[in-house]
Design a protein around this nucleic acid. Structure first.
Length: 483
RNA sequence: GGCGCUAUCGUCUAAGGGUUAGGACAGGGCCCUCUCAAGGCUCAAAUCCGGGUUCGAAUCCCGGUAGCGCUACCA
């Protein structure tokens, strides 16, 4: 049974890099009848916050890729401690009584090659009896893994993405298992839980590639077979540094995409193409195609840059992400799009209860008319405001179209004629507009553009005749008369 | 510093010994047209550098350089 896990630590918002890791885990498991486990790695109690947890859960839910099980590491600390004790008894771990400050000082500054395991060989070699005695006296200690030093063999594993990885065991330090307050570190908790939760494949960021040797050592000491590993290349900012909220702002947070009108699947599609591709020229892929096509050995080994311009209103996100979203917006089944549009309207004060019954069809027609030229869901309530409500601003460029000589009178005249039109259809409206233009010897474009301006306050938009019909005779005539 | 990973247009990527190095986004132009989109066509744009191996290298090997990661009682 394939079982994967996504293990975020709630010390920040859900990062798009984390989201991509989750997405790849999900595709991998779903494509093979496996299960997805969400595990909150909150072993760092001091830095973990409720707010972060909320953000992570909200972000993941929005992606609409449901998980099968959920666990929280802090609720399993007993298990972790038992495992640590077992390792200590077996001699696979030892207590390090070195005072914290001493370690901080020796290791930190312009680090020589020395690590704690070299700095304090006395701790590693301390007789168990002395170790037990000092612990019993309450002297604080860190529990460290005793990396085998006797033979200088090398460690190796086959990463599904990075292929065979090997390392001299001498290059692996005696890493911490338990902190001096008794709490488990990430390495211990993660490995113990991976064993207990029967994780078959660990798919995570490349920043853990070298940590994997420690984990394999731990899996073996714990008596479990190591899972398969697949490390993913990292996501970098436009400056080439690892994406971070601090440095790169709100674009690294998943909820930003939600709040700015991305379709969940448009976002998923975009992320899936960072470090992976279907190897053909497809770019817009359905969830099903993604699940069927994804494979770890198709994942690139190079970091990808998330390109965006924080200063630009247009390119606040990667232009390609925006484009992919716009493609989904116009290609997805209209019925699937409607709930998203419907939830945008009330927020903007543009909701009409009749959208649920009498005007349901109208809403859907209008959405269909508009979506081909929109990028995000927010466009429906900003650019599309005049369609759903009666208060809207007139843009400068639209005003110019209205200010053209004779434009207003023509529109007033047109309003009269439309008011008495038999059937208010696109065809008939067009006939009236062109007819009037011919009578007055003006270019139809003059009237058409002025009409669009009067009707929507904008100089751009769908075919003006379609706009007339979308608004309906009553509203259209009223707006023509008002200018 | 040590250890490791990586290197194709500005960006995301395809091509894993033989291609005019392909596609997409973004940019330029044209068509369409009532505007803006969409759509169609089109232009510009890349194999980090240096050595090998080979008839032939983006592709394999070595070196350099650069970027990134790890080197925590963070994950």
């Amino acid at each position: 049974m394939i079982r994967v896990r996504f293990a975020p630590s709630p010390t920040g918002f859900l990062h798009i890099g984390g989201a991509r890791t989750y997405i790849f885990n999900w595709f991998f498991a779903r494509g093979r009848g496996g299960q997805v486990i969400l595990r909150i790695d909150d072993t760092d109690r001091e830095r973990s916050t409720q707010e972060s947890l909320r953000s992570i859960l909200d972000g993941l839910k929005w992606l609409d890729l449901p998980w099968d099980e959920q666990h929280r590491q802090s609720e399993r600390s007993g298990t972790h401690r038992d495992a640590a004790e077992g390792l200590l008894r077996k001699g696979a771990a030892y207590r390090d009584f070195t005072p914290r400050q001493a370690v901080d000082q020796s290791g930190r500054e312009e680090g020589e090659s020395s690590g704690p395991w070299l700095a304090n060989p006395g701790m590693r070699e301390m007789p168990p009896r002395e170790s037990d005695r000092r612990a019993a006296q309450g002297e604080p200690f860190v529990l460290r893994f005793r990396v085998p030093r006797e033979s200088s063999h090398s460690l190796a594993f086959d990463d599904l993405v990075y292929r065979r990885q090997s390392r001299e065991i001498g290059d692996v330090e005696d890493f911490a298992l338990l902190r001096s307050d008794g709490s488990p570190t990430y390495h211990l908790a993660s490995t113990v839980d991976d064993v207990e939760l029967k994780i078959s494949h660990v798919i995570r960021g490349q920043d853990h590639l070298t940590n994997t040797f420690k984990h394999i050592l731990l899996f073996e000491a714990l008596g479990g077979a190591p899972p398969q590993f697949a490390h993913l290349p990292l996501l970098l900012g436009p400056d080439g540094s690892k994406l971070s909220k601090r440095k790169h702002g709100p674009v690294v947070s998943v909820t930003t995409y939600r709040d700015r009108g991305f379709l969940p699947h448009g976002f998923v599609n975009y992320l899936s193409l960072l470090g992976w591709s279907p190897k053909d020229d497809r770019e817009i892929l359905t969830r099903r195609e993604l699940v069927e096509g994804f494979s770890p050995d198709g994942v690139l080994r190079t970091n990808a840059i998330v390109s965006f311009d924080e200063a630009s209103e247009q390119d606040w996100a990667d232009p390609k992400a925006l484009w992919i979203n716009s493609q989904h917006l116009r290609q997805m089944p209209l019925a699937e799009l409607m709930p998203y549009v419907e939830s945008e309207l009330p927020e903007a004060g543009l909701w009409d209860p009749a959208y649920e019954n009498a005007r349901k069809q109208w809403l859907s027609n209008t959405t269909d008319l508009l979506r081909a030229r929109y990028t995000t869901l927010k466009d429906f309530t900003s650019k599309g405001r005049a369609y759903f409500g009666d208060t809207f601003d007139i843009e400068p460029r639209a005003r110019k179209n209205l200010d053209k000589a004779g434009a207003r009178e023509l529109l007033h005249e047109l309003a009269e004629r439309l008011a008495s039109l038999d059937e208010f259809s696109e065809e008939n409206v067009e006939k009236q507009v062109r007819g009037l233009a011919a009578e007055r010897s003006v270019k139809p474009g003059l009237m058409i553009n002025a009409a669009r301006a009067a009707l929507t306050g904008q100089s751009v938009g769908p075919s003006a005749f379609a706009v007339f019909v979308a608004l309906g005779r009553e509203r259209a005539v009223k707006r023509l008369k008002q200018v």
